[in-house]
Design a protein around this nucleic acid. Structure first.
Ligand SMILES: [Mn+2]
Ligand SMILES: [Mn+2]
Ligand SMILES: [Zn+2]
Ligand SMILES: [Zn+2]
Lengths: 132, 132
DNA sequence: TTTATAGTTTATAATGATTCTAAAAAACTG
DNA sequence: CAGTTTTTTAGAATCATTATAAACTATAAA
């Protein structure tokens, strides 16, 4: 199996459910943005196999902790995740409620001049809201 | 009353509740970040007067729509609002779960090079996550 | 000042995303 | 295999937020 090693190396047992979720998330041409609900639907459509909602939540959180997924900071009643773990930014189309990737190269270099004592910068994320 | 005109001009009737919430939100030296729960507590402490939770939600949303408050895009189970409606950015201290203002002047100019057809940029917000 | 009307507040219920629980199943180790 | 730990699962619980609908209030017309 393609993802067995990856999971083992992270200390996660390569269960059937995790391997299937890996397929849905990572066996794609392109990266994508999703909510838990989106993912549950994708799983239903792509696999002939039910995975319990609790497991989907557990797995997504486990993958996020291991750095295989990122949460996208946005105001929505649902949490958005990203299979694109490269350092990048987002457009948010307010009308369509859709996220669009914005590569680092599409944003000038960002230089944070203010420093907070005893704290390090972990990430710098830009959200560009779009209207018509 | 200090805020009566402001409310009338926005098409909002200057009710006792709205005027009191204005006091709590805008009669301050400094701007601040808050959740609905924070605001309810502030109201309890500062006014000898109960305002129902539904009214707090209604009022905050009304003020946001009128541009007197801004929502801050962040991943939390609660929605964060900001009384600082000037164009600015945020640090988010992951350990303390606290927001810190980051003035535009503390961030180099941000130039979004990618354009989305038929859409205009409404806002550009930077979130800088801090760790120890 | 009344009266009519639209807007607002309120307690309470409903919603819905997320987390919790604890028992059954599966993965691993020796 | 036997023992142990991790994982899955259905279902319950949590909790921020929104909806409901009846009582109240601001406002303007009569
Ligand atoms: Mn969320
Ligand atoms: Mn929210
Ligand atoms: Zn992305
Ligand atoms: Zn702020």
């Amino acid at each position: 199996m393609k993802y067995t090693e990856k999971l083992r190396n992270s200390g996660l047992r390569p269960t059937k459910q995790r391997l299937q979720i890996c397929e849905v998330l990572f066996d794609t041409e392109r990266t994508f943005h999703f909510t838990i609900n989106d993912l549950v639907n994708k799983i239903k459509k792509q696999l002939n196999n039910k995975i319990s909602l609790a497991t989907v939540y557990n797995t997504v959180h486990a993958f996020e902790k291991k750095g295989y997924l990122k949460q996208i900071p946005i105001n929505s009643n649902q949490t958005y995740f990203d299979t694109n773990i490269a350092d990048h930014h987002h457009f948010y189309d307010l009308k369509e409620e859709k996220l669009i990737d914005l590569e680092n190269s599409d944003v000038g270099p960002i230089n944070i001049l203010k420093k907070i004592d005893g704290k390090k910068i972990k990430s710098v994320e830009v959200l560009v809201k779009l209207e018509d």
